[in-house]
């Protein structure tokens, strides 16, 4: 049976593969090509070489948005994963109401990014006006921390579920054996649980890392890049270059930025995958 399946595998793969080619590979190559062109609509373009890339790297708003994105990514990856793991630990202890809490923490993940962004914008603006601080549109610091809080609130639940699944897979025997050998709770956590859930950590860090870099909806809705593009992240900067500008030169520039963005995200996440994978242990 397995042999037969193997023989026919190309046929089974075909539908998805064709969809992948049409929906991903072709547009990707087209996009790559367009980044070397000047164009207004994607069907009408003129080859201009690498000047788009030169201009993209010269654009200070682009490099600034990169710095902001990195600053955001570091803090949000750490806080989401630490808090998500902490909650998972708590909710695998067999406390009362565990299921309700799991559901409650997961809920924010079911709401779309744009909606969340606007809800939090209202909330944060209210708080800021009560404490007499400049509102979000004028407040870079509040915008930055607002984004972090928003993303934590949205993603902790999701990561928590993955960590719970990982923690439940840690065999009781190991923990019992450790206890008999006199290991403290702290030792059990660091020497047994964390190494055993390393695959979950790999997944969660990968997800939070790529999400942080690709963040768009929440950024657009919460701050819109205000004030003066200081809270503009990578994806929003590309979008603004492409759509908010009038003139031939901007589309290709936006496209070039998008290609740079794509390469960066791939490289960074590859490094991360390799780094955390190497720490995974055999069960």
């Amino acid at each position: 049976m397995e042999k037969a399946l193997k023989r026919y595998s190309p046929i089974f793969v075909l539908p998805t593969f064709a969809a992948f080619i049409i929906g991903f590979i072709i547009p990707f190559i087209e996009g790559l090509y367009l980044s070397f062109c000047q164009f207004t609509t994607v069907s009408n373009f003129k080859w201009i070489g690498i000047s788009n890339y030169i201009n993209a790297l010269k654009d200070t708003s682009f490099t600034d948005s990169f710095k902001f994105t990195v600053a955001f990514a570091i803090v949000s990856i750490l806080s989401i994963n630490v808090l998500g793991f902490g909650l998972a630990l708590l909710l695998t202890k067999g406390l009362k109401g565990t299921n309700i809490f799991r559901t409650v923490f997961f809920m924010p993940n079911l709401i779309g990014g744009i909606v969340l962004g606007y809800i939090w914008q209202i909330l944060i603006n209210c708080v800021l006006s009560i404490v007499g601080q400049p509102l979000l549109a004028l407040n870079t610091k509040a915008g930055y921390w607002g984004l972090i809080i928003l993303m934590c609130w949205q993603q902790i639940g999701y990561m928590m579920i993955i960590y719970i699944a990982g923690l439940q897979n840690v065999s009781e025997d190991l923990i019992e054996a450790a206890k008999i050998d006199g290991a403290t709770l702290k030792q059990i956590l660091w020497k047994i649980k964390i190494p055993m859930v390393m695959p979950s950590i790999t997944i969660c860090v990968f997800l939070t890392l790529t999400n942080s870099f690709k963040l768009f909806d929440q950024n657009l809705a919460l701050t819109g890049g205000d004030p003066n593009h200081t809270t503009e992240m990578f994806a929003l900067n590309i979008y603004q270059t492409f759509y908010a500008r009038a003139g031939m030169q901007w589309k290709g520039l936006g496209q070039a930025k998008a290609v740079i963005f794509c390469i960066l995200v791939v490289v960074i996440s590859m490094i991360q995958l390799r780094a955390t994978r190497s720490k995974e242990v055999q069960q």
């Binding site: 026919y8 046929i11 089974f12 075909l14 539908p15 064709a18 969809a19």
Partner: peptide, 12 residues
């Protein structure tokens, strides 16, 4: 199996 695959491809 072949039939199913064909139908899937065709429907897509």
């Amino acid at each position: 199996a072949l039939g199913l695959a064909t139908v899937m491809t065709a429907s897509m």
